[in-house]
């Protein structure tokens, strides 16, 4: 019964769904305020979701029908499975030694699905967008993984819960590895394909990227998967870099965790507001010439600290 509650309600599916909607709204609202606009009302993400669900499901002739239906489900399932292992305020559905690696693996499944859905489409924008998403994946993933491996190396464990516990004994990962935190945030922006790294779905270049020819339920599932990925990615970073709640010891864990997650979300919104979209070759340059060496430096520094 407890397991079922955890799977379906908290911190499982329902909780994730509502957090995804909340995060989407907060994100849009914050960006709107930065741009001197009012922004949408709180029910806008729900309205968008319901509207998409109600719309006619059209698939272009020549696209692989089975794959088109399976891929959004695969992305969603991977994100939901990853969510099981990411503790929310110290509560996780499941956990084992090495769940960080599993979560990282599962979080790259949506990226692969995203590329594949472009590949099976017949539209030229989808194909270009799909290729771009793969190129982007290779650019951000290495620094991102290295940045996330550094806390694990520092605390000597691959379990997210134990990394949080280790931070409880020492201090925030953010304070110990500020560079790693920045790299992880940039990597997360690339992973979530948010502005300014929304290269695979750049509107003025490839319309909506791989999802150009999708509508109805499939598009709704895609959007849900992407929004849930945002939530899971932010939760993961909160755990790894600001996991400890000792400073707020007298407060219950869950609201503190939520506040930290929202703070990271605002940082992401800020990045979306501050910069123009990068070109794909500029992103590759950034990824391999700046971020990857920095991540390496960070990792070596961490190893050196462990050695002391």
């Amino acid at each position: 019964m407890v397991i079922l509650f955890r799977l379906l309600v908290f911190p499982g599916f329902l909780f994730l769904f509502f957090s995804a909607m909340l995060f989407d709204w907060v994100d849009r609202r914050v960006i709107a305020r930065f741009q001197e606009r009012v922004g949408p009302p709180w029910y806008q993400p729900f309205a968008d979701f319901v509207k998409l669900l109600a719309k006619e499901d059209v698939l272009s002739t020549g696209a692989h029908a089975t794959a088109a239906s399976l891929l959004p489900v695969a992305a969603l399932v991977a994100v939901l499975t990853a969510a099981l292992y990411v503790p929310v305020g110290g509560i996780a559905v499941a956990s084992f030694e090495g769940d960080l690696i599993l979560v990282l693996f599962l979080l790259s499944v949506p990226a692969i699905s995203y590329f594949l859905v472009g590949w099976i489409s017949v539209g030229v924008y989808s194909v270009i967008g799909g290729n771009r998403s793969l190129l982007q994946y290779f650019s951000y993933e290495v620094p991102f993984l290295m940045a996330l491996a550094a806390p694990a190396a520092l605390s000597g464990t691959w379990s997210i819960a134990r990394i949080v516990a280790y931070q409880g004994q020492t201090s925030w990962g953010l304070l110990m590895q500020p560079l790693g935190f920045i790299l992880a945030m940039i990597g997360l922006v690339g992973k979530l394909k948010r502005d300014p790294l929304d290269i695979p779905k750049a509107k003025s270049e490839v319309i909506a990227g791989p999802l150009t020819e999708f509508s109805g339920r499939k598009l709704a599932l895609w959007h849900l998967a992407m929004e849930m990925q945002t939530v899971v990615g932010i939760f993961l970073l909160v755990n790894l870099f600001v996991g400890d709640s000792r400073f707020f010891g007298w407060l219950p864990q869950l609201p503190v965790f939520g506040l930290k997650a929202l703070a990271l979300l605002v940082l992401l919104s800020m990045a979306a507001v501050l910069y123009a979209r990068l070109r794909i070759d500029q992103l590759a340059d950034l990824g391999w010439k700046i971020l990857a060496p920095l991540a390496l430096l960070q990792f070596v520094a961490t190893l050196w600290i462990i050695g002391l």
Partner: peptide
């Protein structure tokens, strides 16, 4: 121009 290079903030400010 700003909109087309994904720089919505400048777009909003300019049109404001």
């Amino acid at each position: 121009l700003a909109r087309n290079i994904g720089f919505d903030t400048i777009f909003m400010y300019a049109w404001r």
